[in-house]
Structure formats: C-alpha cells, structure tokens
Computed example of a mutant assay.
Amino acid sequence: MAMAVMNILTLVTILGILIWALTAAHGVGPMLSQSANSVTSSQLGWSMLSGINAVIGTVAPALMSQPDFSRFARREKDQVWGQAVAFIVVGTIMPLFGCMVSSATLKIYGEAIWNPPVLIVVWLSHKYDSATRAAAAFAGIGMTISQLAVLVVDNAYSVGIDLCGLFPAFLNIRRGSYVGLVLGMAFCPWELLSSAAVFLSVISGFTVFFGPICGIQICDYWVLRRQRLRLSDLYHIRSEGIYYYFHGLNWRSLVAWVTGWAPLLPGFIQTVQPAIPLQTSIAKLYNVAFVLGFTISFVVHLGLNLIFPPPGLGEIDDTDVFLTFTRGEAEALGGQAESSAHTEIIEVGREELKMA
C-alpha cells in the first residue's frame, strides 16, 4: 500500500511539472517543429540503435531483479501484466514526458533543462514568490518520494536479497540493504547527473554487462533446462547438489559472460573517455551492446553446455519437497506431491487467496 501511494504521488508530481511546462511554453516547444539535421542514412541508423540501447539500459537492472518481486505473484500470469505495463507502457510514456518538458524549457528559459531538481532551482531563481515557492516545495517532495521508491525497490531490496544469498550466516535482507546503501554512497552516484551526456553514457553502460547476463539466464532456463529445476538443490551448498558445479562456480556461465562483454568494452571505455582513439567499427559495436552481448553469451553458454554438459541437466525432484505444486501439477511434471494431507492444505490455501 505504501509503495502504491508513493507511485501515485510521483505520477501526480510528474504530470504537474508537465502541465506547467506545456502551459508556460504554449506547447511542447521546438521539439516537434524544428527541422532535423542532415545526416546520412548510416549515421541515422547508428543513432537510432544507440538510442534503443540507452532505453534498454534504463530498464536492464529492473529486468535482472524481476524475480525478486514476481515470486510474490499469486498466479504465474500476474507478473506478465505487471512487467508489460511497467516496461512497455510506463517505460514509453515517462521518457516522452521528459523530452516534452525539456523542449518546453528550451522555449521558456533558452536552455533545455532535463534534470527535475535543476528545473526547480531555476523556478526559484527566476521568480521567488509564494506561488513559486509552494510549487517548488510540492515538486521537491514528490521527487524525493520518487527517489525513495526507486531506491527501495530497484536498489535496496534487490541488493539485500543478493547479499543475503551470498552471506546468509551474516546478513539478512535488511542488513544487506544497508550494506548496499553504504557501498552505493562510496561510488558517488551524484556525479552521474553532472550532465545529460554523462547520464546517458552510464545508463547505456549497464547494457554491456546486463545483456550477457540476460542471455545466459534465458539460455539456461528456457533452452537447456526447459524450465525444469531441482528445487531442493537450490537451497543448500553441499557438494552433492547438481548446482554446486566446481566449488560453487559454474565456469561455463563465467566464460560465456566474459565473452559477451569483452568485445563491447573498448566502446564503453571510449564513451567514458572520448579522448581515447578507437577504430570506428569497434566503437559502433557499443551501440548494439545489449543485443550483441545477449546473443554472444547465449550462443557461447549453449555451446559450452552441449559440449561439456553439467550434471543433472533438466532434472527435477522426485517429490514436491516445498509443496510448491498441487497434486495435479506435480504429477504433470513427472513427480509426486510430498503427502496428500499437505497437498490438500496447499490447495485450500490457494483457493482462499483467489477469493481474497
């Protein structure tokens, strides 16, 4: 409930800023009316690919952390609608709002202001009356709530779960979140907002490393294992588990991951340090970082697992150890429910959830 309220307040704040910008500029500004720069078809194509890569970079961290939240869904299809709305609908509309506000500020103030906190400061510097101060206060509160929501959902909670899984004897989710907060401050994230170019470079940089990870995950779960996991071996670190691999490390995935981002690293470095000379053809690979990294890691991971198959590939538990499925679902998967009494309890619980 608290997160829903925070999201609503964030939306109201964004709409308020958008309405003010369109009203003050009497439209969206020069974004829709100015003539396009003359570029070659090749330049236009690579620019479009770079933009697509940047957009993917904005949602790449959330894509990787979706299982942290989708596991709470009542039904399997619930998470599909949630992700479709969040990534496709909201992920398209919100950047459009940002472009419209930036274009409007270009007409109002003579410069395109893309950063909301900077825009609030500009309000106060141009007109410091009671109405402007009130607008700045409400917008500032809304932006603060927005950042808290993003911090909790996309950063703190996901990092807490990951660190808790790595060090369960020392950390729980809350402690892991605090550790992630301290580490995040050490990276000085405010430097990423020094300019729009730096911000886009960092956002695009996510795709270099997340694309290969996504390719490995999809290949491993959907192609190699065909959605069949031995759940009991996921929750222990004994060497006899099929997911223990070599001292807990699956070298196939590591090789596939490094192979996926290695060709993209020169382009990423040049984006951060433009003074470094680099061949144009190599630099252009960075414009398709997510797709290329995804494809390379997918193919390499598939090939390594076919040549060097890991033990227990595609195996499942003989019985429903964690009472995850109904009796019918367990039998359809080729296993058995742990006990009829427990299965009946689970089925009753599911019916109660549907009625709630």
Rank of each mutant, 00 (worst) to 15 (best):
354 K>N: 07
190 W>N: 14
155 N>S: 12
199 F>D: 04
155 N>D: 10
326 T>Q: 04
142 G>R: 09
137 A>N: 02
284 K>F: 06
343 T>A: 15
315 E>P: 00
159 V>Y: 06
174 R>Y: 14
313 L>I: 15
63 L>A: 14
6 M>L: 15
102 S>Y: 06
287 N>L: 06
71 R>W: 05
222 W>E: 02
214 C>L: 13
319 T>M: 05
34 Q>H: 05
309 P>C: 00
323 L>R: 11
243 Y>G: 00
126 H>R: 06
165 G>R: 10
80 V>P: 02
173 I>L: 12
88 I>F: 15
133 R>E: 14
9 L>Y: 10
97 F>G: 05
105 T>V: 11
9 L>I: 07
326 T>A: 06
279 Q>K: 04
36 A>S: 12
164 C>W: 07
266 P>M: 02
9 L>H: 02
93 I>N: 08
99 C>D: 01
7 N>S: 13
332 A>C: 05
233 D>F: 01
14 I>N: 08
116 P>T: 00
105 T>L: 12
7 N>F: 14
346 I>P: 01
15 L>P: 08
356 A>L: 13
189 P>V: 03
55 V>A: 13
15 L>K: 01
131 A>V: 06
278 L>M: 15
216 I>F: 08
173 I>M: 11
104 A>G: 08
14 I>E: 11
245 Y>H: 11
266 P>G: 07
169 A>V: 01
211 G>A: 00
223 V>I: 15
305 N>G: 09
24 A>L: 03
